[in-house]
Write a protein that binds this DNA or RNA. Structure first.
Lengths: 205, 205
DNA sequence: CGATTTATATATCAAGATGATATAGGTGGT
DNA sequence: ACCACCTATATCATCTTGATATATAAATCG
């Protein structure tokens, strides 16, 4: 089997804040959980139908005076139960894939110019995100000081601020390192080194 | 279309270090790039066949005196070119999905006991990884000081050390926060707040 | 006023990624 | 003989996702 459908619960979670259409869900996801969770239309619309058939959401068509019809979904009682039950399940660590690191790992076959360009571009994107997170924290605290969800929103925002600040330091350090790389003459692969390590090839989880 | 096949290049990269079987590739991936890139058998074996049909790798069967036959794959000249061409393509930012953060974001519907348990478990795993990275750095520097790949291996290891150190601070801060959460009385959703922001709903980046 | 662009809104597809599972030979212990 | 474990290859069903299609209506522009 594949893995369990987590998009389903992200959508349930977003609908728990207020009734929304698929289009709304996409925009709300980008604006709220977008820093650590992405959902596209291709997962939202099929999942809304699935959730409907499972009785976890209900829908009704809203005709708009300006613009096309909207199909607005709301959590049912059963949907709330499902959401709360999911919250009580131990979260699994998500697999990470970082193409930048993969390219740097095989960096002996790529010139420093390319490497530094990749890093500088990623660094700028990281700084923009970091500033955005910081400004959202400031605005939340001043504009929505008394909302029951605030402590939890701040926790996830701080996660981004902590890790992205550390990332920025790594970018600076790494760019400097790459400007003065002196290559060794050996050609032993890293893989063999680690596999033959003291733990007998087994790595710590 | 889906996205371009990146497993293919991870496998090419690993094979560039030395000829390996599918089983070797899995173990080598875990031991070397496993901290930022995962490959399972379900992607390795089909991709090896694909790479073979594309002429990017060659293979030969090795009978083992103890144990079953091995199919050992090597990079061809064409495979080397493909790998180097890929290294020169700008890496795309990978989408991040963090189930722990998703559950904390909707944390007002979950008791603090569960939340703290999740965080403490994740923190322990993070600390183990961090220590493992630090010891690998130390061992690499002392045991393989003159390898041409060393600067690049260290770069990726330092990435993990930087971000996981920051993560550890966030865990401590967050666990302390959750022990003294005072919930507000309001119930405005975060989503609406951000969507109505000055940038008109568009987020940076 | 007609043309193009932009925003709203729903939907589907092909390709890629992945946890689970199947199969099988060999080794070592009890 | 049986069980547990390691090596080794392979496939499936499900989930995930970038790209694309379709349609309405508002906004921009020459």
């Amino acid at each position: 089997m594949g893995r369990r459908n987590k998009s389903k619960f992200a959508i349930l979670g977003l609908l728990s804040t207020e009734p929304m259409s698929g289009y709304d869900i996409k925009r709300a996801a980008e604006a709220s959980i977008g820093y650590f969770w992405q959902e596209g239309y291709s997962s939202i619309y099929p999942n809304l139908k699935k959730l409907l058939s499972e009785g976890l959401v209900s829908n009704k068509v809203e005709a708009q005076t300006p613009g096309p019809d909207r199909i607005v979904y709301s959590l049912t009682e059963k949907g709330w139960e499902e959401l709360k039950a999911w919250l009580m399940l131990e979260p699994e660590p998500e697999p990470v894939r970082n193409e930048l690191l993969l390219k740097l790992f095989f960096g002996e076959h790529l010139d420093a110019k390319h490497q530094i360009r990749y890093l500088e571009k990623a660094r700028v994107a990281n700084e923009i995100r970091l500033k955005s997170l910081q400004s959202i924290v400031a605005r939340l605290k001043s504009e929505l000081p008394d909302q029951s969800g605030l402590p939890y929103w701040l926790i996830t925002l701080k996660f981004g601020i902590h890790t992205r600040t550390a990332l920025d330091a790594w970018f600076e350090e790494t760019i400097n390192d790459l400007k003065t790389v002196v290559k060794g003459s050996g050609s032993k692969p890293f893989t063999k080194f680690v596999l033959k390590a003291a733990d007998g090839g087994k790595n710590v989880e």
